[in-house]
């Protein structure tokens, strides 16, 4: 986990010391990176030139260094940490299966996975129900 904003590392320290550590009872457990000229944000396509800050861009990067997922929100809406965790678990399952398994909509650990193949084409309706996306 890496967090990153255009704030200096000094501001990160103040935020950790005076607010976040009081919220969680200890120091922020991950590195808080500083991208003061927005260069990193620009390379990820989430830097907002108009306000000079980075939008809420969240990237899941696999052990090979490839981007598996991203989500970008405007500043006033916070993220869903559980959804990020769910996606990581799904990508890890797919990776562990060597690409033989896929996680259908609404999947979370323990729920049904699918084995894509010729027999499954046109037959999802027999093995997977729409309700599973919502339960």
């Amino acid at each position: 986990m890496l967090s990153i904003s255009v704030d200096s590392v000094f501001v990160h320290k103040m935020w950790n010391d005076h607010e976040i550590s009081k919220m969680i009872g200890h120091d922020v457990p991950f590195m808080m990176c500083s991208d003061q000229d927005g260069g990193i944000g620009k390379s990820y396509g989430i830097y907002d030139e108009d306000s000079g800050v980075e939008t809420r861009g969240r990237f899941i990067i696999d052990p090979d260094g490839n981007v598996q997922a991203f989500e970008v929100l405007t500043p006033p809406v916070g993220r869903n940490v559980k959804e990020t965790m769910r996606q990581i678990q799904a990508f890890q399952l797919v990776r562990a299966s060597g690409g033989t398994e896929a996680t259908p909509a609404g999947w979370r650990p323990g729920k049904q996975v699918l084995q894509p193949g010729p027999e499954l084409v046109g037959n999802i309706w027999q093995v997977w129900k729409v309700e599973q996306a919502f339960d």
């Binding site: 990153i4 935020w15 980075e54 939008t55 809420r56 990067i61 990020t84």
Partner: peptide
């Protein structure tokens, strides 16, 4: 810190508008 230090691990990179 470099992103490349985390090769071999899953990384969540979170951008945000600013501290506070």
């Amino acid at each position: 810190v470099s992103l490349s230090e985390f090769k071999g691990k899953w990384v969540v990179l979170c951008f945000y508008p600013g501290d506070f």
